[in-house]
Design a protein around this nucleic acid. Structure first.
Lengths: 142, 142
DNA sequence: GACTTAAATGCAAATGATTTGCATTTAGAT
DNA sequence: ATCTAAATGCAAATCATTTGCATTTAAGTC
């Protein structure tokens, strides 16, 4: 996951210098399988026999620090995360105001952190581009 | 506030077809005075004799529907709002990961909803560009 | 392979933001 | 001045997230 690393949970953990526990492997496997931005409740539901919620949160925080994950966006009080690896380049997200689902959009060429600099004095570590509106399904229902 | 409206709370409420109540006037006045993106707790603290929290939330939801306000961003479980009027054009925001403060950045020419279109099928009603990192104050302390 | 210990986990309780139910008050029309 | 739907305050509920603490376990070390 880290920029160059593999996507094998065990390896990812070892490379990040983290203890390899059943819970961490299971959570990472679920995240890799999920393939899109997820909230803690998303990933819990996607797992059979998920670890305790506190454990999931603690591990997600750890994965964020280790750059195994990054925050995709926060909306309506919930944070969504996604894998932070070369196989998953940064891209904008879309939040459907009707069903609340979060979609990953295609990367937009030419729109990078570098091309959208804010004023001086700020040290930018991340940029997020977020759209709101109606997803295709909800849009066609209207 | 609505695209063309005035910034006088009473007038804003009337134009939006909302009942004019003391609480609504007070909240709007505080928001106009505040001049930047605010959370509910920000605006409560900025008021003397603020209405009940539930009332503030209910009114903010209403102001969002009426386009008197828009959501600036959500982070760490808190939503930030700002005036949605011609005097306050859309602009990117910056969240300081050290102190948690939210900053309004200057508008970036050429970067508009129009110039950053997501794939087909989506109906885009809003776009937010958000930066994270260290604000000038926290950055210089490091 | 058993031993040791710091780190990880589960569970329960705390926190903080936001929402809701309901009895009371009030803006705005009559 | 009167009436009624809508707005408010207050308390309690909800939801996401965090924390304290006793118990378990990964990963050396012998």
């Amino acid at each position: 996951m880290s920029s160059e690393g593999s996507c094998v949970p065990r390896t990812v953990l070892t490379e990040a210098g983290l203890k390899v526990t059943r819970q961490r492997i299971d959570v990472l496997e679920a995240i890799v399988r999920y393939r899109k931005a997820f909230s803690v409740s998303d990933i819990k539901q996607a797992m059979t026999g998920a670890p305790d919620t506190a454990t999931i949160y603690r591990n997600i925080m750890l994965f964020l620090e280790k750059k195994i994950l990054r925050t995709a966006l926060s909306c309506n009080g919930t944070s969504f995360y996604e894998l932070d690896c070369s196989h998953n380049p940064r891209h904008p997200h879309f939040v459907c105001e009707m069903c609340g689902r979060v979609f990953c959009l295609k990367h937009i060429d030419g729109v990078e952190e570098q091309s959208l600099l804010p004023e001086r004095g700020f040290r930018v570590t991340a940029m997020q581009l977020e759209y709101r509106g109606l997803c295709p399904a909800c849009n066609s229902k209207k």
